[in-house]
């Protein structure tokens, strides 16, 4: 979902705001095609996530933007990927802002559909992500 890729994939570009209105470290939550979407500037790169946590439906994009905390060994905390993780305001599930993937279960596949009346076998693990980029001084999201 990098800025350099040819955008679109059949999706429609929507202007969000002037790039100057979304400086690094900030976010904006906008409604596009009836969907609440958070657009983030992470160190000059833009990312967008559906403002809905796949766990309990919380407004995910209102959560804290944090670093990825890791440890090469017990008791050795290390922060990396500064500001690239969003922590859901309910229950603190962590998602990778750049992909929507769950930090705890990055490889789990988001269940998109299942037979009517049948519960999904597991919670959805991935937040819906959209491409976002700056085009001619405007932040654009493809939805």
């Amino acid at each position: 979902m990098s800025v350099g890729e040819a955008s679109g994939g059949g999706r429609t570009p929507h202007p969000v705001c002037a790039a100057a209105e979304l400086p690094p470290g900030r976010r904006r939550i906008v409604t596009i095609e009836g969907k609440s979407i958070g657009v983030f500037n992470v160190g000059g790169r833009y990312f967008a996530l559906r403002n809905r946590c796949p766990h309990r439906g919380a407004p995910l994009c209102e959560g804290q933007v944090v670093d990825l905390v890791t440890a090469p060994a017990p008791y050795a905390w290390e922060n990396e990927r500064f500001g690239e993780i969003i922590r859901c305001p309910w229950h603190s599930w962590e998602f990778d802002l750049t992909t929507g993937r769950s930090v705890c279960h990055p490889d789990s596949i988001r269940t998109k559909s299942y037979p009517a009346g049948v519960a999904a076998p597991t919670e959805h693990d991935r937040a819906e992500a959209y491409e976002a980029a700056e085009r001619g001084g405007v932040v654009v999201v493809w939805v």
Binding site: Y75, H91, W93, C104
Partner: peptide
């Protein structure tokens, strides 16, 4: 618990 609070003890790498 781990899923919510993982970042506090990040050496716990798996469920």
């Amino acid at each position: 618990t781990w899923r919510s609070l993982r970042a506090q003890t990040p050496w716990v790498k798996r469920p």
